[in-house]
Design a protein around this nucleic acid. Structure first.
Lengths: 346, 346
DNA sequence: CTGTTAGCGCCTTCAC
DNA sequence: GTGAAGGCGCTAACAG
């Protein structure tokens, strides 16, 4: 038998004051309005005893705010990686006493409209528009306060974006090899060697490639070869590496993501090559997979958790006052040094 | 410049009727109250033109309902598997025009209380209490309409539960081996051979084991050995299998989950044993990993998506009228037949 | 068949 | 310092 909720009127009655007074005390403005300390204590005590909690719906109707934000993504909730984005957003939201609606559009514009409406009708204070893989998205109009997460606006827009710093990640991967002493025999799996040789739609591919080429180029290291893979799955990594091994004997592989690297490991293993003894491997994403592989894979991590956090931070900054409109926030991608990189074989 | 929301009053004015009439028409009860077809059309047309959508917060305050449910879990949002639970819940919710709040307790009772309050204050219509791994949980009191997802109540409770049917899954795994012709040399990795030999807290372990023992026993097949692993990670599977190989030459392995199986593969490979030529492997969970492994792993799948769906279905059934209180809904775990099981080596 | 009236629970000018 | 009154947007009695 759960009793009826305690209302402000109940509280006022129990404390023997008017609803106004009770409200003032509860919203913490009793002080500035010089409510007697005595009365304040009485109200506070009654509130604690009755377990009074303001009805958020009513407050929402009255104030137009709901302490709620919406997280809508194409299909983010499903992947482990992207789950971390939600987790980051969730924690940052909780720190601010804010709740999170979530929704998936599955890429269907009709669904997206419906979701946005459902959220707006519930008076969300702001929206996070998230993408599963980093990409450009069409920004719906009239969204109110919002940020783009793991996505960039297709058309000009003054919404801020939060994206992983893929170019710097590419540089990091290249540096890992350089620092291990590699100066030749470096091959790419998944894209390259040229900036045009990338799978379609993938901003990660071109940006990683830019960073790699920049650092390697500056060190005078030539990329020995690269091969594009239409999709970045283990089987493609396997095939690409097998093909590579027919022509070359690489000293180091930069795989454009961990799933490709898994396939590459397998091809290397089949060919009797050891990692990192014969060939070093460095990769991107830091998929959970990376630490299960033998030897453990050195990978430049996608900072999903941090992306989620930043999204709500930026959202609140934007709502609070002015963050520069349209600003792009790049979140660093840390290198997870593990066991797959070693000095080049002589 | 987004204009002010259009309100029911605006709509009524535009259509030249009273707010009541407008409300009646919009809530679809114009028919039964015999509002003139003419007026109805006028209101509908005005609504379409103005883009009128009722303010859900206001409706919530008035009716006490919010078309919103809360999904609170220990840490579910983070795992890929559990992400699918959310996805299932999300889709089932959307089909009913309901939104989803999500929250994570991280196992902290304080946090949990806060979350539940935050949701109740927002007048959620019901709650899904979810666990990451199937286990028993302490049911908070006064939660109102709620269901337990992937969890069972620790004390007696009349909340319904939705859990994977692990016992039947165990039977399925055993049958897979039987049907391939295995009648001896069957070893367990992760638990067993006895029902007491299980990692603590794991209901999955004991139930899977029950199913396995039942079917194998009925077929007169003896479990050759089993070893408990404190945690079900690849490294434990590796160690357990290495240890096993020191003493036996197994014909088939039942790994209690896929991550253990990954480790087992590795040990088998190191020992020069081929799968499934020398030893067959069957496992549980159908982690994404399972289809990346070579050969692809046959596994009994955790039906995360379906669990999520069922949770909201049961929740609504319960709210609608009466589902039997305390009922436990067991969701089937389908076998994913792949490449790791073959006939026993002679 | 339609309009008037009265709240849902809360916050916020205003007087006292 | 405190109380009375009004209204956020909507629905539901009850009249007309």
């Amino acid at each position: 038998m759960s009793r009826r909720r305690v209302t402000l009127a109940d509280l006022a009655e129990a404390a023997g004051v008017s609803r106004t007074t009770a409200s003032l005390v509860m919203t913490g403005r009793g002080r500035e309005l010089r409510i007697s300390h005595d009365v304040e204590q009485r109200v506070l005590r009654a509130a604690a005893e009755l377990g009074y909690r303001p009805n958020a719906v009513s407050v929402g109707l009255r104030t137009g705010t709901s302490r709620t934000i919406g997280f809508v993504s194409d299909t983010v909730a499903t992947s482990r990686l992207a789950g971390d984005m939600i987790k980051g957003a969730l924690e940052a939201a909780r720190e601010r006493g804010v709740m999170l609606f979530i929704g998936e559009t599955e890429g269907d514009p009709e669904l997206e409209r419906g979701l946005l409406h459902a959220m707006q009708d519930r008076q969300v204070d702001g929206l996070i528009l998230a993408a599963m893989y980093t990409r450009t998205i069409k920004v719906p109009k009239d969204v109110g306060p919002a940020v783009l997460l793991n996505a960039l606006p297709r058309q000009a827009s003054d919404l801020p974006s939060i994206v992983p710093d893929e170019v710097e990640a590419g540089r990091s991967a290249a540096r890992v090899l350089l620092e291990a002493g590699h100066h030749d025999g470096v091959h790419l799996i998944g894209a390259g060697p040229g900036l045009r040789n990338v799978p379609p739609q993938s901003v990660a591919a071109v940006e990683r490639l830019m960073g790699i080429r920049e650092v390697l180029g500056a060190a005078g290291v030539k990329i020995a070869s690269g091969r594009v893979c239409a999709d970045w799955l283990p089987e493609h990594g396997l095939a690409a590496t097998e093909e590579l091994l027919e022509r070359h004997l690489p000293k180091a592989l930069i795989c454009l993501n961990d799933r490709l690297a898994l396939g590459a490991y397998q091809a290397l293993n089949d060919a009797g090559l050891s990692v990192p003894g014969d060939v070093s491997v460095v990769s991107f994403d830091d998929h959970p997979l990376a630490s299960w592989m033998r030897p453990k894979l050195t990978s430049v991590a996608l900072p999903h958790y941090e992306l989620g956090r930043r999204a709500v931070e930026v959202l609140f900054a934007q709502m609070g006052d002015k963050a520069k409109p349209g600003e792009v926030h790049r979140v660093p991608m840390p290198v997870r040094h593990r066991e797959s990189v070693g000095p080049p074989r002589p």
